[in-house]
Amino acid sequence: MKQDILRLCTAVAEDAWSAERQHTVARIALGRSGVSLPTRQTLSFALDHARARDAVHGELDMPALARALAGLGLPLLQVHSAAPDRACYLQRPDLGRKLSASSRSALLAAAPAGGCDVVFVLGDGLSARAVASHAPRLLEALLPALRREGWSLGPLVLASQARVALGDEVGAVLGARMLVMLIGERPGLSSPDSLGVYLTAAPRVGLSDAARNCISNVRPDGLSYPLAAYKLMWLLRAARRDGSGVALKDGSAAEAAYLALQAVVGVQQGAGKPVIS
């Protein structure tokens, strides 16, 4: 009897190809309980989904983000899109691409005379966690190079309930010649904190995705901060010369300096597809 119960307790059929797991992060060789997922696997999936859901619904902690950005030496502005809350944001992408009336007037009042070379917007997008975790670190890696090359920097704009195109309106209002949106991408099960970077030259309202360049999957387990900063700097220089958009192809990864950096910080794990607009 005791032996039978012991056998019952190990009713999971393991798979003979578990060694293949070293070749992919896909959920292979999970084993079976009957035909179904073993308890351990079903809970592991549930945990990853829970984290992704929390990332989608988590709010941007503005005071904490402001503290994390304080050392960069740039003035901070807070704006809100025209989507009042998350439920509306998820169903009305058009509102997430537009500034609220009060945010628009506040920005107009704060616009630097004569504009500036580049403005950074930090938007929550679909993962506030991604922006909070990675945007300050990416900026720390990037700003010294920009300052060395004499780019004039506008204020850092923190945007809630934001979609990518919101940055274009912010850039237009502030007279930015180049706009960079740092925004939380749609969380995947294994990447609840993936940061997307979108670059627009001569930003204005009404531009399509085709007018922007994108760097996807910025996070320590994806594209690391130094490599992302290198790519972004490359795109900024190229876009200042030729404009941004589909015609501008990111050629940074072929450069010797990039490869040298990659040798130090490691290869990107793979981006998948950019998953927010």
Partner: peptide
């Protein structure tokens, strides 16, 4: 899709286990 988790497209579909069910 292995474990219902498409690691390239970043969404959840059905798993091989789901089909067996």
């Amino acid at each position: 899709v292995p474990g219902a988790d498409d690691i390239m497209l970043g969404y959840q579909s059905t798993s091989f286990h789901d089909a067996l069910y």
